[in-house]
């Protein structure tokens, strides 16, 4: 699948409290989505649109295990995140819930805020259509790829239990 979107950039060590602030922790999911990344940029959800892409530095999603962090980004409609690398729990949870995340060491340096980027989620090729840069995301290990292809951990587990997959 190929996606295209406008880029919003974030720095290193964007923690889960900045992504999904604690004060909204018991709010409805649609409310939480409207506050996603508020701790890093209070105007983010006013500026960004569904389909946009996040490009970040290293250790994105560090901190808490709150699944609301990747979930509120997904629910807002962000189509993919490209970061140098992610925290361990954020990696697991994003793959589990089907939020496309890509690891690319050069993205934060080569891609600028506001650029339009095209990502082939299958091959991992990232094209910055604004400045012409072409980057390659690192490949996930085969096991994680099978989890991604299953559409996340719910359907992967349903398969293990001999049940039909749920529609996305």
């Amino acid at each position: 699948m190929v996606i295209t979107g406008k880029v919003w950039k974030f720095g290193d060590n964007i923690d889960t409290d900045r992504i999904a602030p604690g004060q909204y922790s018991t709010e409805a999911t649609e409310v939480q989505a409207q506050h996603c990344l508020e701790g890093a940029d209070p105007d983010f959800t006013k500026k960004a649109k569904p389909g946009d892409i996040i490009v970040a530095g290293k250790n994105f999603g560090c901190g808490s295990s709150r699944e609301r962090a990747p979930q509120c980004i997904k629910d807002f409609g962000i189509s993919a995140i490209v970061a140098s690398y992610y925290s361990r729990i954020f990696t697991r949870s994003s793959i589990n819930i089907g939020l496309p995340i890509l690891e690319c060491a050069d993205a934060a340096e080569k891609i600028n805020e506001g650029d339009t980027v095209e990502i082939d989620l299958d091959s991992g090729v990232i094209k910055d259509l604004t400045n012409g840069e072409v980057l390659m995301a690192s490949q996930f290990p085969p096991f994680l790829q099978s989890l991604i292809q299953a559409g996340g951990l719910v359907n992967y587990t349903r398969k293990k239990l001999g049940k039909e997959p749920l529609a996305k």
Partner: peptide, 28 residues
């Protein structure tokens, strides 16, 4: 919870996960 690693104080292996991982453990 990310602070699940606390149980290492007693010599256990322990790690935090999100809700979906926990739900899969609950099933399997």
């Amino acid at each position: 919870d990310s602070h699940t690693c606390t149980y290492g104080g007693v010599g256990a292996f322990s790690a935090g996960t999100g809700s979906t991982d926990a739900a899969a453990v609950m099933a399997l």
